[in-house]
């Protein structure tokens, strides 16, 4: 996903949480999947999404499609990059690999926690894990590389 912030998300937890909330509210696909911000830290974001009939990938089991989990992981990854302390102005997913460990339990909320664990002058590296409510090990884990666009004049 490609996203931009007019300015950095700020350093205090209040400004970050506010910016993150506005960010997700403005994205139509995130609204369509009823995504919600659970927690925002320095270079870390936790987002969740409820189970829904429309997202089912196999009607015999009611298990949510992997693609919907990707959307949640990708969004949390982008949010984790935007709230990195070096305050990038924009980011876009370059590459995202998801490993599906097990089926998410039907009718349970899915929560993804992403951490932007390293940034270079123009690249951000992200790790993410997704859990259902049972919490017995992740449903899926992801690794991604995102573009990292710094404000003009900001030091590397």
């Amino acid at each position: 996903m490609r996203c931009a912030a007019r300015q950095g998300w700020g350093m205090t937890s209040e400004t970050r949480a506010h910016a993150a909330h506005q960010f997700i509210e403005a994205l139509p696909h995130c609204r369509a999947l009823s995504m919600r911000i659970e927690d925002i830290g320095e270079g870390a974001a936790t987002l969740s999404m409820p189970w829904a009939e429309a997202l089912v990938g196999d009607p015999r089991t009611g298990v949510i499609h992997g693609g919907a989990v990707s959307a949640l992981m990708d969004t949390s990854g982008g949010a984790a990059v935007l709230c990195h302390p070096s305050e990038p102005v924009a980011t876009a997913t370059m590459d995202l690999r998801i490993d599906y460990m097990r089926a998410a339990k039907p009718h349970q909320r899915i929560t993804a926690r992403a951490v932007c664990h390293h940034v270079t002058r123009s690249v951000a590296f992200v790790r993410a894990e997704a859990f259902d409510e049972d919490g017995e090990g992740p449903v899926a884990v992801a690794n991604g590389a995102f573009t990292f666009e710094r404000r003009k004049g900001a030091g590397a």
Partner: peptide, 16 residues
């Protein structure tokens, strides 16, 4: 749509 400013498809939609 992921980013309404561009606008662009959501990366999750592309993956799906």
């Amino acid at each position: 749509i992921g980013n309404p400013a561009l606008p662009a498809l959501h990366g999750g939609v592309t993956a799906a």
